[in-house]
């Protein structure tokens, strides 16, 4: 049984086709890494999974994507509910200009949760989940901008976890961070795998090898190869994949 299933997905920015016939399925509680050179379509694909591409004008998607066996591109899909279930973490840490507490509480508030006890409980749990609690417990009422980049990114993950999604999309979550913060996030991904299905876009091959169970290699809008991470990095079936991961291009 697959958690996420895409069937023959094409995607267009205006007249330009960015994705060609992508069929890709992911099991529950696995980490899938999407790798490939810039402009290969991996981020575009990631953003289809929570319909973030809807925000861009003049785009078109064909094919179907199913999450929990439900087509998320049907006319009657509630996009807000979809995004509640499919959390997202961005390339640059982007906490809101609010307090640390309010950043995590935001998702709960906009989804109609008003009970202060529930909010507080979820805020604390989420911050604990990202191993940030000890660092921020005394300054929850301070601005999130006072945190370091790595702390901000973990706060953004906590913000996404607070509304209890089942899927977590990460778009190059460590590309703006130093090595120590990066390894903390990677450790976190290992922990979170038990509860969430994670899809991560990364430019860092070592990172893909370290954190993921499966790896998909995109090139020029096409899915070239998709397999167990171990297989991709030790004996890839296709020459292009091998060239890319050995650093011959890209």
């Amino acid at each position: 049984m697959h958690k996420i299933e895409s069937r023959n997905v094409d995607f267009f920015y205006g007249e330009t086709q960015a994705l060609h016939d992508i069929s890709l399925s992911m099991k529950e509680n696995t980490v899938t890494a999407l790798i490939g050179p810039s402009g290969c379509g991996k981020s575009t694909y990631l953003r289809l999974l929570n319909r973030m591409n809807d925000l861009i004008d003049n785009t078109r998607m064909e094919g179907s994507i199913l999450i929990d066996q439900k087509d998320i591109y049907l006319k009657n899909t509630n996009v807000d509910d979809l995004r509640k279930n499919v959390g997202m973490v961005f390339q640059k840490p982007n906490p809101f200009p609010k307090t640390i507490y309010e950043n995590v509480a935001y998702g709960l508030r906009v989804n109609g949760i008003e009970d202060k006890k529930i909010i507080e409980e979820r805020v604390v749990t989420s911050i604990e989940q990202v191993a940030l609690w000890d660092e921020v417990k005394d300054k929850l009422k301070k601005s999130a901008f006072e945190l370091s980049g790595g702390q901000q990114q973990r706060l953004c993950i906590a913000r996404a976890l607070a509304i209890q999604p089942s899927v977590l999309l990460m778009d190059e979550p460590t590309s703006a961070l130093d090595p120590i913060s990066t390894s903390k996030i990677e450790e976190l991904i290992h922990e979170l795998k038990n509860q969430y299905t994670i899809v991560i876009v990364t430019h860092n091959m070592q990172q893909a090898a370290r954190v993921s169970d499966n790896t998909a290699f995109f090139y020029m809008g096409k899915l070239i190869e998709y397999d167990k991470t171990k297989t991709i990095f030790t004996k890839p079936a296709i020459k292009q994949t091998e060239d890319y991961i050995t650093g011959r291009f890209g």
Partner: peptide, 13 residues
């Protein structure tokens, strides 16, 4: 734009 995306990504209208 990422502020908007982050908010919409949390299910906000």
């Amino acid at each position: 734009a990422t502020f908007r995306q982050a908010s919409l990504g949390l299910g906000a209208s």
